[in-house]
Amino acid sequence: MTNRTGLIVENATTGYDSADVLYGVSLNAEPGKITCLLGSNGAGKSTLVRLILGLTPARLGRVSFNGRDITRMQTHKVISEGIACIPEGRMVFSKCTVEENLLLGGYGEKDDALLTKRMKTVYDLFPRLAERKQQLAGTMSGGEQAMVSIGRGLMSEPSLLIIDEPSLGLSPLLVKENFKIIKEINERGISILLIEQNVRQTLAIAHYGYVLTQGKVVAAGTAQELLKDETMHAAYFG
């Protein structure tokens, strides 16, 4: 049995070409919790997601998940460790049907019966997707695509779900709906690393949070602590 330490990023530095984007970032997404990573545009949030997933290699530092070193793992191996991601901008496979999108989410699972069962769970969460399973994802509305993307992220029954800017490009009503669902997912026992710009709504559901500014963690603490933290206010509101 692996030890349930969750996701630990230690002193990670990385970037693209000659420019570093993250400088010695450390964070811990504890099992069963919602951990959030706040930061404005260009702070390096998405780069950190890419680093965890193995899409952008770490230059320095270490990433581990439940005690296993995943720093240099290929992306598909990281995923098979029990991590799933709902990417920024939803990124549904627009030329695949809703059902195919969900199947892709559970790509690592070869047991058809299990996949069917998980798909049913997703359809229970989003009945609208059940009505439209044969529809091409690219022809759906933004809100529906968000459902596809969330459902797809659940199909591998991950122990950690990374959600990158779920509120981007959605109406306030849908954002609210989305945050409610994220909380529900967490209540089913899935740890969540939530990447967001939307401070108040995020801290309302998160247990613990980090604030990233220009590639560095400038504040960390429980949601209540962060709400009162002056560094965070400075980071956001200047």
Binding site: L53, L55, Q74, T75, H76, I79, S80, C85, P87, M91, F93, S94, K95, C96, E100, L103, L104, G105, Y107, G108, R152, S156
Partner: peptide, 25 residues
């Protein structure tokens, strides 16, 4: 087929396909 679905996914969006756990190589 499952394999074909993975090929189509890679054709549409390589990075997201990898994020689904598809072995791109």
């Amino acid at each position: 087929t499952r394999l074909g679905l993975a090929i189509r996914a890679v054709a549409q969006d390589e990075e997201t396909a990898r994020t689904m756990g598809i072995n791109f190589g």
